[in-house]
Amino acid sequence: MSSQMAPSPGAAVRFRGVRSRWGALALPGAAALAVFFVVPLAYMLVRSLSDPSPRNYVEVITSSIYLKSYATTLLVAVWTVVVCLVLGYPYAYVMARSSRPISMILGFCVLMPFWMSILVRTYAWTVWLQDNGLINTFLLRLGLIREPMALMGNALGTTVGMAQVLLPFMVLSLVTAMKRIDPALELASRSLGVGPVRTFLRVFLPLSGPGVFAGGLIVFVTALGFYLTPAILGDPTKPLISQLIVERVNTLLDFGGGGALGIILLVLTLVILLIGARFVDLKEIVGLRGES
């Protein structure tokens, strides 16, 4: 199966010229990445330190507006992970353990939204959640409520929208881990007279731990940088860090302050990922060399 099987010694010598040139094929792409991705990020770093001075960071770390925003951002990210885990765990379990047609349907339901525009999905939530939206209209007509409930424009709306967008990441991480659990282990536990609930708690749940960790990590980190969903469904008076970055740069044209906020968010994201990568394989999360 391996493509990296070494050719015969003679062939290796004969084709050495061919082999050594392959690396060069990566150069144009690497150059594009450098010019349009690395240079902009580096320039952002420079601006954040020099426009007008590194004091940007002091302001961004000490001002109460920003501190509150970091707290809100972390809180929303934690809630999103919790909701994704609660919804994703049974879903992934069924997907990993049911017969082929059912697991294919569930796989479709999770991959379809994965590729669907986040903007459209968030916009669709406004149709459901706004004051004269579907849910409030329905409940008002049934007489269950007297006036519309605030379902969006607050942390609830943001969390619901973000959880729905990020749920596929959680489910896919969980399924990968759960498929590795040998069903015979549970059978063994049951045959020793252990009940189904305890078998789940003592055998299946601990073994699915790596999936929970990987899914939680990727959802948490992605949630930290989410912009569209909080901008559309969230509370404008309690902006997340991403919204403050956009406001700084786009509305106030404060490149230094916005840049500093951006660098802090970036460093936070990378540090959490690097710590997390000690425990899970990040390549697996992005789908590199995963099962096909």
């Binding site: 792409g29 690497a30 991403s242 916005g258």
Partner: peptide, 25 residues
């Protein structure tokens, strides 16, 4: 390291990529 660098546009929050691109563009 090269692999991680090349996958990094997937990892860096898009809002940061957007702002950074905007600065230089």
């Amino acid at each position: 390291v090269a692999t991680i660098a090349i996958l990094s546009p997937m990892i860096v929050p898009v809002v940061i990529t957007a702002v950074a691109n905007y600065f230089v563009f």
